[in-house]
Design a binder for these strands. Structure first.
Lengths: 316, 316
DNA sequence: CTGTGGCCACAACGAACAGTTGTACTCGTA
DNA sequence: TACGAGTACAACTGTTCGTTGTGGCCACAG
């Protein structure tokens, strides 16, 4: 099916005749007739009843018409999503189920008229480059990684401290613990495949490991979130970290358990990054929304890397 | 833009390489390469970065991908809307802003997973023929019109009595009346262009006119609801009838006034019609929903044609 | 350093498609 | 009965699309 054909159908339906639709589309009446005939052949139903003074929609045509209009609307938005200048706000998040996605969902609920496109870049370096080149408008990242100061033209504001939880299967030794301390975790295997050194998230976990003597295994390729959860659920000796706001999509939860970590609670710091010259009108709205939504976390007994927090982190 | 091209883009994005996408689509790798290149040329952006072991999405490609998927979903639904067998429930209503549309909106809110297609047929005769031929599943109509008994295979149930109101412009003599009686209205001009004799709605107003000695002018062609409202708003001597649940779409309401009609209140009877053999699974759901939503109108001092009401109508 | 495998792009060719012009048909109307 | 308005069919043509064949690039192994 061709969108030009759909456009022709809508034009003919609006005009009530092929001739006028042809004039609107700057083609001949015969071309419209052939396009409609081809569409009818493809769909297997008659869309118009031809009359001596025009063409009017059949019942099938009436039913098809709103879908055709919707198709053109969606196509319009699709093209707009890659149009330079006045395109939707383009947001980089770490993962589709991360807390950042939750923030964006909240923003979308508050401002449904603002068009958004969400992408997932590799790390903060890629994100900063994309922001500076204009490829994206904003990014949620942990900033302050040692040796990687933000360029002058990038602004940032911390928007969310997300507590990490331990995720275990039902047979794990800690499966029924109400909470666990970071020190206790030193005795357990933590598995986080897919960590790539040099990224800001790797730096976060490097600091966490160094500070509390944890064992984090990053072995094995990352087969995706599903495979990870599958293994965690089936392996009693393995556990992993997961943000408190991360949404698990898992059939009947598979017996997975989330266990709060305390004394201190490790928190992953999410900051919003943007170019100080970015003129996108939705950017100001997003910043205002996040500023209003933030400021609700108690900083008692939490841990984050030194480089990640403007305020001094509490230590055990 | 061609949907085949979009499908190719999605396949390539999912596969991560053109070769595998080509195999999935049963074309050659070169064809995929050309399609993607054409799409990129049309959009004016690069969608993939070609690497020696595949192709991965650019940021623009990542932003475009969900729109492409949505496009395919909508196209799928569009095709399904005219597919014989297991297509969306097809509903005939009198007008897009009528109370019937309100009922269907309520049904859609209660059952958002049920696909609906709304069409507007000419009169009950057309609707019954469409129901019997299977072209539509259900229709909202006033049944019982003299000389037009429902065929044996059509079932119906009354679902809504909609009170009629008088619609006037701000300069109309009755513009500030809190209500008006049917008897009073005999002295005023009621204008309802587009009434076609032989239809069930014409029969309704014929009976109303005959019973209360009203003057309803049906002169002039029907230029649509907007033109009607425009004229009503600007002409002090004209008024028209409008269902209490009819939604007016009018910039700042233009000073239009709705005045309740009493002693008695004329009500337009909406019945649901369907073929007793119709196997569509959504039909039973709709009937149950309407049965639950109905049964909330007080029959005190209302009027409807004899033929339209099973129970005897109250008379002045 | 070189051979090899995997993958993408370019070129040339043939088939299919889409659009144009010209013409015939139908129906309502003067 | 002729005419006007509108659509469908036929023949022709230019373009597009997909195929085969080929070359280039990069990673990896020997």
């Amino acid at each position: 099916m061709d969108l030009n054909t759909v456009r022709t159908f809508v034009a003919a339906a609006d005009a009530g005749q092929f001739q006028e639709a042809a004039a609107d589309l700057a083609v001949t009446q015969q071309a419209v007739s052939k396009r409609i005939a081809a569409l009818e052949r493809n769909l297997g139903v008659r869309l118009f009843t031809r009359t001596p003074r025009g063409a009017e929609l059949t019942i099938d045509g009436q039913a098809f018409l709103p879908h055709a209009r919707e198709l053109l609307r969606v196509a319009e938005r699709a093209v707009a999503s890659v149009r330079t200048g006045s395109r939707p706000l383009r947001v980089d998040v770490i993962a589709s189920r991360s807390a950042q996605s939750g923030l964006m969902r909240g923003f979308h609920r508050a401002h449904p008229e603002i068009e958004l496109d969400v992408v997932m870049l590799f790390d903060i370096e890629t994100a900063v480059a994309a922001i500076r080149s204009g490829a994206i408008d904003v990014s949620f990242r942990a900033v302050g990684m040692p040796g990687r100061p933000l360029p002058e033209d990038i602004e940032s504001v911390q928007v969310l401290d997300e507590a990490l939880q331990l995720l275990t299967g039902p047979a794990h030794e800690l499966a029924h613990a109400r909470s666990v301390t970071l020190t206790q975790l030193a005795a357990h295997r933590i598995w986080m495949p897919g960590i790539v050194s040099g990224t800001e998230w790797a730096a976060y976990y490097d600091d966490l490991v160094a500070e509390f003597g944890l064992t984090i295994e990053a072995t094995g390729p990352n087969f995706g979130s599903d495979a990870l959860l599958d293994t965690i659920a089936d392996t009693p000796a393995l556990a992993t970290f997961m943000g408190e706001h991360t949404r698990l999509v898992w059939p009947a939860d598979h017996g997975l358990r989330r266990i709060p970590v305390t004394d201190p609670t490790p928190v992953y710091p999410h900051s919003l990054l943007w170019h100080h010259d970015n003129p996108h009108p939705a950017l100001a709205t997003l910043r205002a929304h996040l500023a209003a939504a933030a400021a609700s976390h108690d900083a008692a007994e939490t841990w984050a890397p030194d480089w990640a927090t403007p305020r001094s982190a509490s230590r055990p």
